[in-house]
Design a protein around this nucleic acid. Structure first.
Length: 172
DNA sequence: GCCAACGTTGGC
DNA sequence: GCCAACGTTGGC
C-alpha cells in the first residue's frame, strides 16, 4: 500500500518542467526535523506524491511523482561551502536525509491554491492550514485522488487555473 | 516588499 | 527549561 505525500518546491528553484526534463531528481536540502522524521521513518519507495509549486503565480499542484529512493543521506550537509552545511552531522549517522522522486505526470495547468481551498474534500490538508511551512507533508489517499482528478480536469480552453469540469472520474 | 506564522538559537 | 530575538517561509 503506497502512502501519499505533498512535496513543495519553488519553481524558480526547481519546477515540474525541470522534472519532466530530468526524469528523476534528488529532493535535497531539507533542514527541518519534522520533515526529516517523515523521510527517516515513514516514506517508502513506491509512495506517490503531489508536486506543489510554492511562491509561484499561481502557487498550486503541478503534477504527480513517485518516490524512487528513500532514506538517502543528503550530501550537502557535509559540504562546508553548501548552504545546508551542518558541522554537527557526521557520515556514520547523518542528521539530514533526502529522497529521490521520479516523474509520473504533469498537469496541463497548475491546480491553483485557490482551487484547492475551495475543495471540501481538501479542507483538512496540512498545506492549507495557516502558517504551514513543512516542505513535505502526508496526504490521505482521498486527498491525493481529489488533487489528481482536479489536475486531469483541465481542457485546453481553461486558461486561468480553473478546472473546466469536476465530473466523477476514477484514478488511473 | 509586507507581514503572519512558526522554527531555531542562545542567554539566563 | 523558559522565552525573546532572530531567521525563514510563503501567500499576497
Amino acid at each position: 500500500m503506497p502512502q501519499f505525500w505533498l512535496l513543495k518546491c519553488e519553481p524558480n528553484a526547481y519546477s515540474i518542467h525541470d522534472l519532466v526534463r530530468d526524469g528523476r531528481t534528488k529532493w535535497e536540502g531539507i533542514r527541518n526535523y519534522q520533515v526529516r522524521n517523515f523521510l527517516r521513518d515513514t516514506m517508502e519507495v513506491g509512495d506517490l506524491g503531489v508536486f506543489y509549486h510554492s511562491n509561484a503565480a499561481p502557487s498550486g499542484a503541478a503534477g504527480i511523482v513517485r518516490i524512487s529512493q528513500s532514506r538517502l543521506a543528503d550530501p550537502s550537509q557535509f559540504e562546508a561551502s553548501a548552504a545546508g552545511f551542518d558541522p554537527k552531522s557526521n557520515r556514520a549517522q547523518p542528521t539530514w536525509l533526502m529522497c529521490e522522486v521520479e516523474f509520473v505526470e504533469c498537469f496541463a495547468q497548475v491546480v491553483a491554491l485557490e482551487t484547492l481551498r475551495a475543495e471540501r474534500g481538501l479542507a483538512e490538508m496540512q498545506i492549507l492550514r495557516r502558517g504551514n511551512r513543512l516542505s513535505i507533508t502526508p496526504l490521505t489517499e482521498a486527498e491525493f485522488d481529489i488533487i489528481g482528478r482536479l489536475g486531469r480536469s483541465f481542457t485546453e480552453a481553461g486558461e486561468r487555473g480553473i478546472p473546466a469540469e469536476r465530473g466523477q472520474r476514477t484514478r488511473g
